[in-house]
């Protein structure tokens, strides 16, 4: 439990920083940075959930790094702020994020199951 928590903390720090740097570079009028980390992280976690029984690595990578790399709260806030600015963009952002997020996780899951 203590060891897992330390692993989650380390992964969480790395995930948050990676998200920050990508968002800094790519979030403009459209939040492409948040979009990319969310889709990429969903693919990697979809891939990873087929693995079992690697406790510490699970904590570090899945719960820590990928959990922190991707974000739900920022996504919701961006949806609300985009809605106020540009209604077409918010629709695009909503549809792209939710459909591609699911497709990415599903693709990762299937790809890992095949190997």
């Amino acid at each position: 439990m203590i060891l897992s928590s330390i692993a989650v903390a380390a992964g969480g720090a790395a995930g948050a920083l990676a998200r920050y740097f990508v968002s800094q570079r790519l979030n403009r009028e459209f939040p492409w940075g948040t979009f990319y980390v969310n889709i990429f992280g969903s693919f990697l976690l979809g891939w990873y959930v087929t693995n079992e029984g690697r406790d510490i690595l699970d904590s570090l990578y899945a719960a820590g790094f990928l959990g922190a790399l991707t974000t739900f709260s920022t996504l919701q806030f961006e949806i609300v702020t985009l809605y106020k600015k540009d209604k077409r963009k918010v629709l695009l952002y909503l549809v792209l994020t939710y459909t591609l997020g699911l497709i990415a996780a599903w693709t990762g899951f299937l790809a890992a199951a095949k190997i």
């Binding site: 990697l44 922190a68 994020t97 599903w106």
Partner: peptide, 14 residues
């Protein structure tokens, strides 16, 4: 940002 998660949400649906 780290507390909430989008990847787990999608993985759970899958």
């Amino acid at each position: 940002g780290s507390f909430t998660t989008f990847s787990t949400f999608n993985a759970e649906i899958v």
